[in-house]
């Protein structure tokens, strides 16, 4: 039963990693942009949720009603005014600009909120558990987080493969010049993709902040987990990204169970192992 619990916890945490990765994967898939600031945007969403919950006196999960649209608007504006100018044949400018953005967000948050570690309080749900069978328990919050993660991935999958917006995303990713001939303004399509990505970031940020403490310097570590989940799953595949997140979460849980110091190391080793034996990831979609 011990190991069942360990793996179950790993799977549930893996859902969060998959959410870190989903927004990253979406942006890379649509516009070949590697968003180095992705982790910092997740932390920023946590602070936006903090302000919303404190100002309105509502719970963190309720605050998503506001945090998701706020982050989506920020995403649209960020893409329209800044990132669209960096896109082109050269992959370096978007990397440098999002790296700069990462530094700006971290220091902006540090100035506004100090380096103090914070947490969003969501009341009783944080400690509630469900007994599955004798000896196997799951927390309600991790379970909810996992269900939301699967729903987010399924929702993105639906948008990408069943809607006109998703068709526009895929067409623009295939051939931006020909997509324009279809009447698609690439700048607008990319901005919508970034808005969608930051809507996912908003959900991720709130769950991150409810689950554990956060402070302005945490972004890059989230980015690494997101990257690893994307690479393990295979570029451009959303279900692959979920699988990548789960593998990362389970590897960390197993590592931590053997020796508490091995948690993060075990995740990285699992990532390196996949990279070594299957560099294209488990379910690759992107032709390279």
């Amino acid at each position: 039963m011990d190991w069942v619990n360990v793996i179950l916890q790993g799977v549930l945490v893996g859902g969060l990693y998959a959410m870190f990765a989903a927004g990253l994967s979406l942006i890379f898939g649509v516009m070949r942009l590697v968003n180095i600031a992705h982790g910092d945007l997740i932390v920023m969403a946590a602070y936006v949720a903090l302000v919303v919950t404190q100002t309105l006196g509502i719970g963190p999960l309720t605050s998503l009603i506001l945090v998701v649209p706020i982050m989506a608007v920020i995403g649209y504006a960020l893409q329209w005014f800044v990132l669209n100018r960096t896109l082109g044949d050269d992959l370096l400018p978007p990397l440098l600009v999002t790296f700069g953005l990462s530094v700006i967000i971290q220091n902006g948050l540090l100035t506004l909120f100090t380096a103090d570690s914070l947490k969003l309080q969501s009341g009783d749900i944080e400690v509630a558990t469900i007994r599955l069978v004798e000896g196997v328990y799951v927390g309600v919050l991790p379970l909810l987080q996992f269900v939301v993660a699967v729903a987010v991935i399924a929702g993105l999958q639906f948008v990408f493969y069943r809607t006109a917006l998703g068709r526009a995303f895929r067409a623009t990713a295939d051939d931006p010049a020909v997509a324009q001939l279809m009447g698609l303004d690439n700048r607008h399509v990319f901005a919508l993709a970034m808005a969608l990505s930051l809507a996912v970031v908003a959900i991720t940020g709130v769950f991150l902040a409810v689950r554990a403490n956060f402070d302005p310097s945490q972004g890059p570590a989230r980015l690494i987990y997101g990257f690893e989940a994307v690479i393990i799953g295979g570029l451009g595949s959303l279900w692959g990204t979920l699988a990548g997140g789960l593998i990362l979460g389970v590897a960390q849980a197993i590592g931590a169970h053997i020796n508490p110091g091995w948690q993060i190391l075990a995740g990285h080793i699992a990532f390196l192992f996949v990279l070594a034996v299957r560099p294209q990831g488990l379910f690759p979609k992107v032709r390279t």
């Binding site: 068709r167 895929r170 067409a171 990713a173 295939d174 051939d175 010049a177 997509a179």
Partner: peptide, 8 residues
């Protein structure tokens, strides 16, 4: 060269 969208 037609320029069809390959993933559609």
């Amino acid at each position: 060269g037609r320029g069809l969208f390959a993933s559609l």
